[in-house]
Amino acid sequence: MDICGMCNRESVLQNSHAIPDSVFKKILRSNSGKAIVVPSGGRDPIHYSSDSWDTNLLCSDCESLLNSLYEGYSLRVLRGSVGGVRRHDLGVTFSGIDPCRLASFFISVFWRAANSKHSSYGKVYIPEPWNGEIRDYLLKNTPIPINLVTVQISRLIDRTPKNGFTLRSLKSVVMSPFFRKHKYGKYSFCFVFEGFFVEIFTPGLTYSLRRRAGVILKDKRVLMVPYLDIFDVPEIVDALVKGYGKYLDGDITFKD
C-alpha cells in the first residue's frame, strides 16, 4: 500500500490530475484523441500526445473530495453554466459565484501540481509549512487565507488583426506551469487552461495589491476577469517562438 498525499493514510492511489482530466479530455476529443505539445525549452521535439499529466497521488476518497467540492463547480463557472456571465470591452464578469470555492479550486490545482511527480509540473513547488497548511485547509473544506495564497485570473485573447488565435483555439492551449520571482521574496506560479491565465501568489498579495482586477476575494460574489493578450505574456511568447523554431528546424515527431 502507498500513502495518500493528502490524508496520509495507506491506500491504493488513484491516477490524480492537477489540471483537471476533463480539461484534457475536452481538448483530446476535438483532436482525434491527441494534442500537440510544444515544449518551451530543451531538446524535446514538437509531438502529439494523449498524456493528461496524471500520477499516483491521492486515495479515492481524497480524489472524490477535491473533485466534488471544487473542481466540478468551478469548471461550470468558468464555462458559463453556473451564475451569470457578461462579456464586455474590458473582460468577462462572473456574478453570483462562490468565491471561496472558486479560489480553493485553483489552489487545489496548484497544490496537486506541486506534489505531483509528473515532469510537466516540475517547476511548481510549495515549501513547508505552507504545503501542509494548504493541504489541511483543502481537506477540511475551510477557506484558505488570502495572505497565505492569492489567486488572480485573466481571460486570454489575441488582439492580432488577422490570422490570430481565436477564443476557441485559446481554450485548447495547456502549458506546463511556470513560476515568477517577485520582490520581497514572493513567488507566483502560472497556469494556462480553459482559455484563462491563472497566477497564484504565495505568500499572498498585500492588501493594496489585492485590488487588482481578477483577484478572487472571499467576500465578493462578482468577479471581473480582465482580458490579457497572449502576446503580453513573455513566457507564452517564448514558448511559441521556440516551438516555431523547432518546426522550422524540422524537429517534429508524431508519437504518444
Rank of each mutant, 00 (worst) to 15 (best):
R221P: 03
R9F: 03
K246T: 04
V23Y: 00
G195V: 06
P145S: 04
R212S: 15
V85S: 12
V23R: 02
I134D: 04
L58E: 01
G164Q: 07
I27G: 11
Y125V: 06
S22N: 06
E194A: 00
C62I: 02
S30I: 12
R9V: 07
F189K: 04
F189M: 05
I157V: 15
M1N: 11
M1E: 11
L228I: 12
L156G: 08
S52Y: 07
V215M: 08
F254H: 13
I200V: 06
F178Q: 08
A213T: 13
L28F: 10
R210L: 10
V192T: 09
K171F: 04
F197K: 09
I157T: 15
Y207V: 14
I107S: 00
P39Q: 08
G122T: 04
I107D: 02
M224Q: 14
G83L: 01
H88C: 07
L167D: 15
K220P: 08
P99F: 06
W111C: 03
V237E: 12
P177V: 01
P39W: 02
F178M: 12
E133L: 07
D54Q: 09
F197H: 12
S40P: 13
G96I: 11
D249Q: 12
P99M: 04
F231V: 05
E71G: 02
S11H: 07
S52L: 04
G122M: 07
K218V: 05
V241Y: 05
V151S: 06
H182I: 10
L240F: 09
P177M: 01
P161V: 06
K34N: 14
H47Y: 12
I236F: 03
W53S: 05
L13A: 00
P129S: 05
L138E: 01
V198A: 03
K242Q: 13
L90W: 08
F193Q: 01
T93V: 09
F254T: 13
